[in-house]
């Protein structure tokens, strides 16, 4: 009972963090129609950034989260400008393969720069636990959940309530028409890509706090994020949150019922089933 409660609670909270890790992928997919195969590696950059911020400067990675997000956004902007922008409008494969190339280069840079060693961001709260009723969960899950939900909701508000969000949705739907009525499509895309990278980096730091990571952790992160994005509906922000939590809980259910070895499998099967039953995603009716 206690084990099940703890497991489900952890899954629920972790699912919230998944939503944040998938948010960037979702935004970029929705607005740029770009399958960012380097998404997982951007998450790993976020984890490394948190790690080195803590070990080099001693700044707590959670306090430094805005800094990490900003740094990644600044890194992502030229990446978009020089690599992705020239390929826009040439179908999905070319930008997708470019990002795969970026992914390979990044992994290699991690190995060369930071060695292939396993790392983990170590703080007091990243390993202490909180017990509520029958469930015991890690503090980091609770904190991560709060940060993630706040970020996702904020992103949702930005997209639905602000003029930038309006521009963003217009670009996502019809970039030519948006340009003609005065939207600087290139700028919106670059900002979206940068904002996506910022969210991704923040998610990566949280993953680094909760788990461990290596230069090659990106692939696993990417698949998980994909599952969340597709389940939530491509480009749908609140859908991402619902899907993240759904996947987190389902994984835990799978873990409880079949063993942790089937965790990812359960999630994938549910994801495949959802993809087939509702290709538009769970939350596609309204954003």
């Amino acid at each position: 009972m206690e084990a099940i409660a703890s497991s489900l609670a952890s899954g629920f909270l972790l699912g919230g963090i998944f939503a944040l890790t998938a948010l960037g992928l979702s935004l970029v997919l929705g607005v740029l129609r770009l399958v960012n195969l380097a998404h997982g590696d951007l998450l790993v950059i976020g984890a490394y950034a948190g790690y080195f911020l803590l070990t080099v400067t001693g700044i707590d990675p959670l306090l430094g989260l805005p800094l990490i997000a900003l740094a990644l956004a600044l890194l992502a902007a030229p990446l978009y400008h020089f690599l992705i922008r020239p390929l826009m409008g040439r179908g999905v494969e070319a930008p997708m393969m470019t990002m795969f190339g970026v992914s390979i280069v990044l992994q290699n840079l991690f190995v060369v720069g930071f060695s292939a060693n396993t790392r983990s961001i170590e703080t007091g709260y990243s390993t202490s636990s909180l017990t509520v009723g029958p469930a015991t969960v890690g503090w980091i899950y609770v904190i991560g959940f709060a940060i993630s939900v706040a970020t996702v909701v904020a992103a949702h508000l930005v997209v639905t309530r602000t003029s930038f969000g309006r521009d963003l949705r217009a670009c996502a739907h019809d970039s030519v028409a948006a340009a003609v009525i005065g939207v600087n499509v290139g700028r919106v895309r670059m900002l979206t890509f940068a904002a996506g990278a910022a969210c991704t980096a923040a998610g990566g730091t949280l993953m680094g706090l909760a788990f461990s990571f290596t230069p090659s952790s990106g692939a696993g992160f990417l698949l998980n994020s994909f599952a969340v994005v597709v389940l939530g509906g491509l480009g749908s922000i609140l859908g991402t949150l619902v899907a993240g939590i759904t996947i987190g809980v389902l994984q835990s259910l799978g873990g409880v019922l079949l063993g942790d070895g089937y965790r990812d499998l359960v999630a994938l099967v549910v994801f495949l089933a959802a993809l087939i039953i509702r290709p538009q995603g769970l939350m596609s009716m309204r954003r």
Partner: peptide, 11 residues
């Protein structure tokens, strides 16, 4: 005002 109206579905 473009041919085909080009209304933004999400707005």
């Amino acid at each position: 005002c473009m041919e085909g109206r080009r209304i933004f579905a999400d707005l």
